[in-house]
């Protein structure tokens, strides 16, 4: 099967800091990938390069057959980045819901404004996705009145309503109170079960163990380990991976 995401020789500098070092990665359709690593290892930057929230310094990104080379410029290049963004949905650590819009408006904003979808069609789709994350009952509420877990579930519904091919999660539970993490992880499990391709930057080892098909470990801008969770957690090869897993174990997660 052809990979749905192919990252080739990706480099990223912030000023003189070399954050991603020649990273390559292939993700198959319906695969769930968890990216773990210490903070500063480059895992969020890698994720944000996939939908060009960060501009790669070198290499190329391919999503669903569409390739963008980092050295290209111009209108066609911008158009391809736009199309890659349409194929990817993103969920942020800080939710980033639009506070001036109701829950439903948040969810249909993308399809209506960006894709030009009929409002009625967008509402039907949005309501379906709000229902699947268990948030339809807050349809007309404003984000301010939601808990963190509820906000993140709405954010997932918002990303899903764009009907992406790949979902990117950037530490989706890190800003949540511990008792709210479960509801978000459950929604993510459901999205995975529905066959969505997912790339998840996370510190939730339980989630990685249970849901991921592959767990990638990043350190100093490189992928140092890439294995299925059973193998990785029971027999980590790299000493840095061992130290990381040990830290999580003692940290109680």
């Amino acid at each position: 099967m052809a990979p749905i995401v192919r990252i080739s020789n990706l480099d990223k500098y912030f000023g003189r800091l070399h954050v991603l070092k020649n990273v390559s990665l292939e993700v198959q359709p319906r695969e769930v990938i968890c990216l773990i690593g210490r903070s500063g290892s480059g895992k969020s930057t890698l994720l944000r390069c996939i939908n060009f929230l960060e501009e790669p310094s070198g290499g190329s990104i391919e999503v669903d057959g569409l390739t963008v080379h980092s050295h290209e410029r111009g209108n066609e290049h911008r158009q391809r980045i736009h199309e890659v963004r349409l194929k990817t949905g993103m969920v942020f650590q800080e939710f980033n819901l639009f506070p001036h819009m109701s829950v439903l408006q948040n969810v249909i904003e993308g399809p209506v404004t960006v894709k030009g979808m009929e409002r009625s069609e967008a509402i039907a789709l949005g309501e379906k996705n709000l229902d699947s994350v268990g948030m339809l009952f807050k349809r007309d509420e404003y984000p301010l009145r939601l808990s963190g877990g509820q906000k993140q579930r709405v954010a997932i519904a918002r990303a899903l309503t764009m009907q992406p091919r790949v979902m990117l999660f950037d530490e989706p539970t890190s800003a949540l109170d511990p008792e709210l993490i479960g509801e978000v992880l459950n929604v993510m499990k459901k999205v995975a079960k529905d066959g969505m391709t997912m790339i998840v930057v996370t510190h939730e080892m339980g989630f990685a163990r249970e849901v991921a098909d592959r767990v990638l470990v990043m350190a100093e801008g490189e992928i140092i380990e890439d294995a299925n969770p059973t193998a990785l957690f029971s027999a980590p090869k790299d000493p840095r991976t061992q130290a990381l897993i040990e830290r999580y174990r003692t940290g109680g997660r």
């Binding site: 963004r85 819901l97 506070p99 001036h100 960006v114």
Partner: peptide, 29 residues
């Protein structure tokens, strides 16, 4: 916040759409 711009961009909004639909309504307030 910067996150608002990023969320709009991730949804595929152009800079103009981001300004009109997301940034300006909040800023005017």
């Amino acid at each position: 916040g910067k996150g608002q711009r990023e969320a709009a961009t991730a949804l595929g909004m152009t800079p103009l759409q981001t300004m009109r639909r997301v940034i300006l309504p909040q800023a005017l307030r």
